[in-house]
Amino acid sequence: MTTNESPDDDATTDQRTHVRETYGDIAATGDGCCGNSDAEIAADPDRTLSLGYDADDLEEAPDESNLGLGCGNPVAISNLEPGETVLDLGSGGGFDCFLAAREVGPDGRVIGVDMTPEMLERARENAADSDHETVEFRLGEIEHLPVADAAVDTIISNCVVNLSPDKRRVLAEAYRVLRPGGTLAISDLVATEPLPDEIRDDPDAVDACVGGAATIDQLEVWLADVGFTDGSITVEGEWTDDLPIVSARIEAKKPT
C-alpha cells in the first residue's frame, strides 16, 4: 500500500476529531446529521421510508438503532445472501447492521465498525435488546480496518465515507478485507462538480456530510486505482439546492 498519498497532517487530525466529537454528541442527544439538525426529522419514519427502507425494515430493527443519519439504504441494493459475512463501515446506531443480519441469517455474520464510542454504546444496547446474535460491533477506524485480509463478502456503508479525510485509503482498506469476488455496495453523498474551498474547509459542512463529499470523477479514479472493477456510481437524488451534492450508490467488485 502506498502511504505517501495519505494526508496525515494536523488538518486531517482536526477533521477526524471534529467529526468524532459531533457524532458523539449526536449519539448522546439524538440530533441528526446530513443536513438535518432537527431531531424530529432525524427520527421521522417517513424520511426513513423515503430513503428506500420499507416498513418491515422499521419493524425489524430495534427502535433506538435508527438515528436517521443515513442518505440511502445500502442493504436494499447489496443483494445479501444467507451465510455471508458483511462489514458495515461507520455503523453508528447499528440500524443497517440489524437489517443485514436478517438477510444473511443465522449462518452469516455482520460486523459494524465505528470510531465513535458513544455510537457503539448505543449500538451495543440495541443489540442486547434484540435477538440479533450474529451482529458484532467494534471500535475502529475505517482508514485502519481491524479486519483480516479477504475475510468479508460484502461491505456496506451509509453516508459515512464522505466524512473521512482520506477516502482513497478507506477504499483501499475495503478492497483488502473483501474476498476475491466480494462486493462493495455503499450509499453516500457525492459532488457532481468540485466544491468551493469555503465549503470544503468548513468543519460544520464536513460534519453535515457535505463539505467532505468527493466528486464522482475522483471516486471513480480511486476505485480503479485501488483495484476494484465494475465500479459504478449511480445518482439517486438531489440532496440540497445550494450545492452540487447528490446522494448516490457506489458499487464495485473485487476481481476473482
Binding site: 455474520r109 458484532e136 477506524e141 479486519v147 483480516a148 485480509d149 475475510a151 483488502r176
Partner: peptide
Amino acid sequence: LLEILCCPLDK
C-alpha cells in the same frame, strides 16, 4: 470472531 480480526496497524 477473533479469526477475522487483525491489528489495525500492521494487519
